[in-house]
Design a protein around this nucleic acid. Structure first.
Lengths: 136, 136
DNA sequence: ATCGGTGGTCTCAAAAAGAGACCAGCGCTA
DNA sequence: TAGCGCTGGTCTCTTTTTGAGACCACCGAT
C-alpha cells in the first residue's frame, strides 16, 4: 500500500497484458474476468471455497438463484476449470461440487475484493444515496 | 432487495470463510460485488485506472461496447461513487470520466484479480478446451 | 399409495442488452 | 452559405439472457 512504485509497476504490466497494444477487445484477461464476473459465478465460488456442496445445498444456500441458473453457472465454472463435479451412485444419485486447485487459487484475489466490499459498503451506500438525492 | 444471500444456519460458517473471521449483521457484500461484476463495469474501471478518459475515447477503447451500455454503465459507476463525471464547456461540450478515491481504492483488489487472470488465462483456456473435447 | 428428496430439463414470460436511427450545436470546408 | 463531421447522448426495435415454475424418473419411508 505504501509503495507507489510497486503499484505503478504492477499496473503497467497489467495494462501490457490487458490492452493487447491498442484496445481492450480480444484480450485474454478480459475473457477470463468475464467468465467469473457473472451475477452468480463469484457467489458460488465463495460458497464452494468454504467446503464442497451438493446441488440442493447450494440451492438452499443461495435462495434467490433459480435452479436453471444454478445448473448453468456451475456448468460454466466447471468448463473454465474452477469447479469439479462428481456424481455419487447413491439412490437417488447425488452430485457434489467442489473447487479445483485453479478455483482455489482464483479465490485468493477474489477474496481480496470481497474484503474490500466488506470494508467499503458504507461508502458505496452513501454514494448511492447522495447521487439519488442529487438527481431526484 | 434483500442482500442476505445465505440463510441463517449457513451464514456464520460461510461468512467466516469469506471474511477471515469478521462477522457482520447484514450482508451488503453481495450488493457491492454485483455492482462491479457486470459485463462492462470492471473493464471501464480498469481503463479509467490508467487515466481519465472522455466518452468517445472510452467508446473507441472498448470497441465492442454499445453506446447505450457505455452511458448506462458509466452512470451506474458514478452512482456507486467509483467514477467522477465532469462536463467541460467546450464546443461541443466534452465529458470527462475519472476514478474517484473510492474507485481507486477498489481498483487495488480488482487489480489482483486481473493479475491472476493474466497469469492463469492459459490454464483456463486449456480447461475449456479439455471440457469441450470431453463433452463433444 | 402417496409423499418427499435427488438433480436436473423444458417451456414461457420478463428483463436486459445490442443495433442503429436521430438530435442540437458548432467549426470546418467547398 | 450549404453541407459534413464531431460532440455525448437518447429513443426505438430486435435479440439474447434470465427468471418462474411445471415436469421427470427413481427410490425409501410413511
Amino acid at each position: 500500500m505504501d509503495s507507489k512504485i510497486f503499484n505503478l509497476k504492477a499496473k503497467l504490466e497489467v495494462y501490457k497484458a490487458m490492452t493487447n497494444g491498442a484496445n481492450f477487445a480480444d484480450c485474454p484477461v478480459r475473457d477470463v474476468i468475464q467468465g467469473i464476473s457473472g451475477k452468480w459465478s463469484s457467489l458460488l465460488v465463495m460458497a464452494l471455497a468454504e467446503k464442497p456442496y451438493r446441488f440442493g445445498e447450494l440451492r438452499r444456500l443461495v435462495p434467490d438463484i433459480s435452479q436453471r441458473m444454478l445448473t448453468q453457472t456451475l456448468h460454466d465454472l466447471q468448463r473454465d476449470g474452477y469447479v469439479h463435479r462428481e456424481v455419487f451412485p447413491t439412490k437417488p444419485p447425488s452430485v457434489e461440487y467442489s473447487l479445483t486447485d485453479l478455483g482455489r487459487s482464483m479465490f485468493l484475489p477474489l477474496q481480496q475484493l470481497v474484503q474490500w466490499a466488506e470494508l467499503n459498503h458504507d461508502a458505496v451506500r452513501d454514494a448511492r444515496a447522495a447521487f439519488d438525492t442529487a438527481q431526484g
